[in-house]
Structures are given as structure tokens and as C-alpha cells.
């Protein structure tokens, strides 16, 4: 996730409003933010994926209505996500006796800072050297054990642990660069 300036983002939004095929650029800029925002409130991976997909489909469908008022595009996406999460929670309550978690409905500035930091971390994974990136993805995204990864990559468990360590070190350094 590379950072864009306010004026660059504004141009991207206008471009996508005129030509929706340009939406892909806004998607790339904001995917990790939306995913991290949803994942903070929804623990289940399948549900996080569904809600993230829903947010971007909604955003694309309603892009023409978006008006630039000085706040970042991500804030608009967060609002869509927040509504979708609340709707989902209400639906669950209707379908079961589960109580809604109202504490989770409020978002503080600190929460948003955490979301942004996590989004930068997710984005930084994409820039890791290939062998480290692959191990980090298999371990944290595909949720595989060190042994499974070692088998699939044809390497020793020690070598995989070492790559995991180097990957995490690299990610820490990249986060500290900001």
C-alpha cells in the first residue's frame, strides 16, 4: 500500500467517477485498510472476506454519489464498513438469541490508528523478498504449520523458521521507517 497525497487521491476518485474501470486503483490503495477495519471487529475470516467484498461492491455502485468534502476516501469506506458490520450483527441477533456487542460499535481515533498501522503491515508483506513473503503468507494467511510449509516448499523446518524470523524482522524495520 503506497501512500498517496490528498490531491492525488482526489484525482483518483474523479478518474474513477468518470471511468469506473479506474476503480481498481482506489481498490489497491484501500484494500488493506478496509480489510483491517473489518477484521478488527469481526474475528471470523470468511465473514471478514464477505464484508470486505460487500464494502467495495457498495463503494463501486455508489461512487457517483461520493462528494469530496476534505476527508479521506478511506473514511467513506470505513463508514460503509461500519454500517455493513452493524447490519450483519442485527441480522445475527434476529436469527439467534445472540446479544449485540454494542461496545464494538464505537470507533475511536486510537482504533483508527491501529487499523492504519495494521493496514501498512499487511501492505508491507507484499514488498518482502519472495522467500520470506511466501513463508509469511503461508503461516499467517493460509494458517499452515511450520511442518506443512516445510513439506510444501521442500525445505527444512529450521530454514522455514529462519525465513519467518527474517520476514518479521524486515516487517518491523519497514513499519519503523514511517
Amino acid at each position: 500500500m503506497s501512500q498517496v497525497t490528498e490531491s492525488e487521491e482526489r484525482l483518483l476518485i474523479e478518474a474513477a467517477q468518470n471511468d469506473p474501470s479506474r476503480f481498481a486503483e482506489l481498490y489497491e490503495q484501500n484494500f488493506h485498510r478496509v480489510y483491517a477495519y473489518v477484521a478488527r471487529r469481526v474475528r471470523d475470516r470468511a465473514e471478514t472476506q464477505d464484508l470486505t467484498a460487500h464494502v467495495f461492491h457498495q463503494a463501486l455502485a455508489n461512487l457517483g454519489k461520493f462528494k469530496w468534502k476534505g476527508s479521506p476516501f478511506a473514511a467513506w469506506l470505513y463508514r460503509i464498513a461500519s454500517n455493513a458490520i452493524a447490519d450483519q450483527a442485527k441480522r445475527k441477533v434476529r436469527e439467534s438469541s445472540e446479544q449485540p456487542n454494542t461496545a464494538a460499535e464505537t470507533t475511536t481515533a486510537t482504533d483508527l490508528e491501529k487499523v492504519e498501522r495494521r493496514a501498512r503491515l499487511f501492505g508491507a508483506v507484499e514488498k518482502l523478498p519472495d522467500d520470506q513473503r511466501r513463508v509469511i503468507l503461508m503461516r499467517f494467511a493460509d494458517e499452515k504449520s511450520i511442518r506443512q510449509i516445510a513439506d510444501e516448499l521442500g525445505r527444512s523446518e529450521g530454514a522455514v523458521k529462519q525465513l519467518q524470523f527474517r520476514g518479521l524482522e524486515n516487517l518491523r524495520n519497514r513499519l519503523n521507517e514511517k
Binding site: A24, A39, V125, F140, L175
Partner: peptide, 21 residues
């Protein structure tokens, strides 16, 4: 850092959603 990576999105999900859009 590792704790924040728990729940890392899958590359395939990201690319499929982009294609869908």
C-alpha cells in the same frame, strides 16, 4: 508484529475480489 499479522488477508481473495469488481 506477528500478533498483528494473525488474520492476514489471503492474496487469492484480494486478487479475486479485484477481478470481480
Amino acid at each position: 508484529v506477528a500478533q498483528d499479522l494473525i488474520g492476514l488477508p489471503r492474496e487469492m481473495f484480494k486478487s479475486e475480489l479485484r477481478q470481480q469488481l
